[in-house]
Nucleic acid binder design. Structure first.
Lengths: 155, 155
DNA sequence: TAAAAACCCTAAAGTTACTTCAGGGTCAAG
DNA sequence: CTTGACCCTGAAGTAACTTTAGGGTTTTTA
């Protein structure tokens, strides 16, 4: 039996995140002591590790929910797991490609101003003001986050 | 003079986004007709294009706000613009590196299940349940989004 | 000319995956 | 017995919108 703090240490995530996963139905509700504290079994630990591993692999909670539901039906075929993973991999691949394009655009934009000029002569600002589409218009990545995520998931 | 719908077409973004940028102080409040409709001038168009271009380059609204404030002081030196861009480029570079690592991990995980097994024998699920940290623990990218952004910014 | 379609408005809530905050119990150590 | 570490809940905040609800206006079509 682990307290929520102990579980958090083992899983290397904040206590609040565990409570959040529980509220979202990803982590089963644990036993409560008479002081209303949560007490977790090893099965909870395993599940929490699974979730954290998936999150480290940048899967969404929706994807993880899917995966968990597959996992809870041991008798069916696992090709759906394979498919989910394949799709996730292709999303990541797409995102890499789009960010690489982005980087090229940013670097060529940066090249336009190598000397220190005044603002009104800065070629970067000129480049940004024009009507041509700059960078990826990003039709692809409706699924993958871009360049400014929330704060980190460190312990 | 453009109506908000016309501006949205030119800028290739939803009408709601323009109203949002205005509320956030990025786009100046336009003239209002007697029916309370917004009417934009060419200066608004230019500004909106600037913002959209920056967004296409995956800059945050905070970064854009900075850039716009530089732009509004034509007499000062533009080295701050260069610095902002350099930082943004390095964020994007970091994110690419971390996603590339991620992809490797995902692909090696995917290799573990090439045949169709039952769920309880699926090596992928086994791999995801283990205690070892999988993928990037992502200490770097407190600034760059990951793999699941909001819905796209298409028109 | 009247009704339907297209366009405009505001304010508020929803999205993701948490984090932070406010306010308050519980427990072990000194 | 009090200080600090730990636990609880519920609500609000984060980014950059999107969606919804509810309601005007203008243009088009029948």
């Amino acid at each position: 039996m682990h307290s929520i703090g102990q579980l958090a240490k083992r899983v290397e995530c904040p206590v609040e995140t565990l409570r959040y996963w529980e509220k979202e139905g990803l982590l089963p509700t644990p036993y409560r002591g008479e002081n209303n504290y949560r007490w977790y079994q090893d099965s909870h630990l395993e599940r929490a590790l699974f979730i954290r591993n998936c999150r480290n692999l940048d899967m969404s909670l929706a994807e993880i929910r899917q995966l968990l539901s597959y996992k809870d039906q041991p008798d069916i075929r696992c090709d759906q797991v394979n498919r989910l993973l394949d799709e996730h991999i292709s999303h990541v691949t797409e995102r890499i490609a789009s960010l690489t394009l982005l980087k090229d655009t940013l670097e060529s934009l940066r090249q336009r101003c190598v000397t220190e000029k005044n603002m009104d002569a800065c070629e970067i600002l000129v480049g940004l003001s024009c009507d041509q589409a700059q960078g990826t218009t990003d039709k692809c990545s409706s699924h993958l986050r871009g360049a400014h995520p929330g704060s980190s998931r460190s312990i």
